[in-house]
Amino acid sequence: MGSGKGLVLVTGAAGFIGSHVSRRLLDRGDTVLGLDNLNDYYDVRLKEARLARLKSHPQFQFVKLDLSDRAGMAALFEQHAIRRVVHLAAQAGVRYSLVNPHAYTASNVDGFLNILEGCRHHKAEHLVYASTSSVYGGHTKMPFSVHDNVDHPVSLYAATKKANELMAHCYAHLYRFPITGLRFFTVYGPWGRPDMALFLFTKAILEGKPIDVFNHGKMQRDFTYVDDIAEGVLRTLDRPAQADPAWASDNPDPGSSSAPYRLYNIGNHQPVELLRFIEVLEQTLGMKAQKNFLPLQAGDVPATYADVADLMRDTGFKPATSIETGIARFVEWYREYYKA
């Protein structure tokens, strides 16, 4: 499939992961149609700054549109010869789903259906979409595998992403077009989201304010650097999902299918203790954090750990950026962007 083959629609192009993926696609010669609604879930100026870096590229075109706008999405697919779709737009965040649940069904369920319908009616070659490690819920069996059952989500955000996986499978089965779902594990790095731990911690430490450390620090996360995520997206995009001839209905494998459908974890497959993560950040900043220890929050899980065997087998790639390297790059970006 490779680069330069027709137009790639990237939804959430002004977002953290979407802007990185768009940049990588442009750098290798693809033509990108970026979609975003530029909502105010967090600072719109950050989204606009990410977008400005893309708009300077001659092969990038931007459309401001909401995924849940059914007529608008149908028109978008009518007007553009979209060959492949990287669907990264979503209402993100576990904690916000406790406050504003309707935002999640509008974007993640209705919006995703509009993407599936566009791909179906306009014969897209491949749809790659973002799922999340949150679908594993309170799993204690480590590492998390795409071959595990994930029927017990502990947040509405996770439930909507599990719904995406089911909807995607249905469309791959009925209409036989390739769809690949990617379960991302705690993504961090330059141009990151202000509602995520590394951003919140860095801002607070530099301002001399305390940081909230949930579950009294007894948390582990498979922190994954954004460049590794982007690489995984491109690798899977270039390899459209195929039906598994070995799949059996009497012994169904959740990570495989008789339809052209695949699921992969993209994680650093190396869980890091939250307190170690904070320690590396302190060393990088040359400042100590004041820690405010709190209980585990509703909807949160104590640990995540990705099994990336399938990703490695099918694409030859697995994330490998250490937190020492990744945090240093984030801090460098943060200091420059915020003049901190």
Rank of each mutant, 00 (worst) to 15 (best):
M1W: 08
M1F: 08
M1K: 09
L9K: 08
L9I: 09
A13I: 03
A14L: 03
F16M: 09
I17G: 00
G18M: 05
H20Q: 08
H20E: 10
S22A: 15
L25P: 01
R28V: 14
G29N: 06
D30C: 12
V32F: 03
V32M: 02
L33F: 07
L35F: 09
D40S: 15
Y41K: 00
D43E: 14
V44F: 00
E48F: 02
E48P: 03
A49P: 03
R50I: 06
R50F: 07
L51C: 13
A52G: 05
S56I: 12
Q61N: 11
D66W: 02
D69H: 05
D69S: 09
A71M: 10
G72S: 10
Q79M: 10
Q79P: 03
H80N: 15
R84G: 01
V85N: 10
H87S: 08
H87I: 09
L88D: 06
Q91S: 07
G93P: 01
S97P: 01
L98M: 13
N100A: 15
P101W: 12
A106S: 14
A106W: 03
S107K: 00
G111K: 09
F112Q: 02
F112S: 02
N114G: 12
I115E: 00
I115D: 03
L116T: 10
E117M: 10
G118E: 13
H122S: 11
H126L: 10
A130I: 00
T132H: 07
S133P: 02
S134F: 00
V135N: 00
G138Q: 14
H139R: 13
P143T: 10
H152T: 14
P153Q: 13
V154S: 12
V154G: 05
S155D: 10
A159L: 13
A163V: 11
A163I: 06
H169L: 15
Y171K: 04
I179M: 05
I179C: 08
P190G: 12
R193L: 12
K203D: 15
A204G: 10
L206D: 08
G208T: 06
G208P: 11
G208V: 06
K209C: 01
K209G: 01
D212A: 14
V213S: 11
H216P: 05
M219Q: 14
T224N: 06
Y225M: 01
Y225I: 01
V226S: 00
D227C: 02
I229Y: 00
A230H: 12
A230D: 08
E231K: 08
E231V: 05
A241D: 09
A248Q: 15
P254D: 02
S256L: 06
A259W: 02
R262Y: 05
R262W: 06
R262S: 15
L263Q: 02
N265I: 02
G267R: 00
Q270L: 03
L274H: 09
L275H: 07
R276G: 07
E279L: 07
E282Q: 14
Q283G: 05
M287Y: 04
K288S: 13
K288N: 11
Q290W: 04
L296Y: 01
G299A: 10
P302H: 07
A303T: 10
A303W: 05
V308T: 15
V308N: 13
A309E: 14
L311Y: 09
L311H: 11
G316I: 05
K318N: 11
I323W: 01
E324N: 12
I327W: 05
I327R: 04
E332G: 05
W333L: 09
A340S: 13
